[in-house]
Simulated scan of single mutants.
Amino acid sequence: MKQAIILASFLTIFSCSCTSEKKEQQEEVKKTVVKTDADQVQLSPEQIKNSGIEIGVLGKKEMHTTLKVNGVIDVPPENIVSVSIPLGGYVKKMSLIPGMRVAKGSVLATIEDQQYIQLQQDYLTAKSRLKFAEADYNRQKGLNATKATSDKLFQQAESEFSNQKILVRSLAEKIRLTGLNPSQLNETNISRSINIYAPISGYITKVNVNPGKYVTSSDVLFELINPGALHVNLTVFENDASKLKEGQKIICTTNKHPEKKYLAIIHLITPNIGEDRTTSVHCDLKDNDKDLLPGTFMNAAIELNNSSVNAVPEAAVVKWENKDYIFSAEGADKFKMIRVETGVINNGFVEIKSAPDVKSVVVKNAYAILMKMKNSEEEG
């Protein structure tokens, strides 16, 4: 019985001792964070060191405002070619599919029709008649000079010769439109088919025909794109359009690789607001790669201006109850919480519009001070 009483007394003393020790530790922790005012806090040197808090200055920095818009990769109209034929015919041969690369001058398709035969026949016939008309003109000219023939006959021969030259010239141009060379055409090499050649080097984007199909001069057979000169077509709302001007720099990114940045320069601003209250801004892309294809969605940040403003690193600004604050270093490990109005965020720095009259501010791990301040308020 005595042993039980002694054990109970020992446990009671030990429990009181532990409780007392825990209270002392809590009191010691409270002493390390000293509230000096409602918006001030004092930390111990150990806390500052362990939290990685760094002190810097609130100084001037060159910063520019940015306008964030969206757009797509586009190709200038001169780099998009629709291929048609001057005369109709049947597609005899073609083996193209969208995505294929073709070189300028390569054969895209072969078209055949009897009208090509007729055109070549008309040209060779007219060319033969031209020789006769020229000989008759020279003969009548000599006879008329000696008055051996009338002026009427000479004028008829002259008119026939002139008309025949015109006919031969026009038929030659029609033949050139088909891709044939009239100077190499004779009665032994009349062809019933013509070749369609690629006008530029690039990629086939559309194929609207197949072998055996009849096409007319108004049909678009193929569409080619030369992606060597891509540009960005941005959509800008009317309220922001007045802020833009030619020559402004733009940083573009894609959704696929947001970490990769592409530089572009504003080349042209469409001077018109559409029904959707936007306008188009055309930008020259300075660097591109195989990942950028026509139609690719782009995110763009337009640099609007450049000015000297008060700024601090982003890590210096804390948000509390939807308001922005910074901490000024008051000396003796004291910090004061100051409400500020922020502006532009650029390259890791934040513009401080309502710059307070302070010299030293916390530039790193300001949230550590905020947490310690609010925790001490709750404990208090």
Rank of each mutant, 00 (worst) to 15 (best):
A4Y: 10
F10I: 09
T12E: 03
T19G: 09
S20A: 15
E24S: 06
K35R: 14
I48Q: 09
E54T: 10
G56K: 06
N70A: 07
I73D: 02
V83P: 01
L87N: 05
M94S: 03
S95R: 12
K104A: 08
A109N: 11
D113C: 05
Q114H: 06
I117S: 05
Q121P: 00
R129P: 01
K131T: 11
Y137W: 13
T146E: 15
T146P: 03
A148G: 15
L167T: 15
L180I: 14
N189A: 06
S193D: 07
I204N: 03
K206Q: 13
K206P: 00
N208L: 03
G212T: 15
H231L: 14
A241L: 15
K249M: 02
K249V: 00
I250E: 03
I251Q: 08
H257Y: 14
I265S: 11
I269G: 03
T270I: 13
P271K: 09
N272I: 06
R277N: 05
V281P: 02
L285P: 01
N288G: 03
K290G: 05
T296H: 06
A300D: 00
S308E: 13
S308W: 01
P313D: 09
P313R: 11
A315V: 02
V317D: 07
V318R: 04
G348V: 01
V350F: 04
S354P: 01
L370M: 12
K374I: 02
E378K: 14
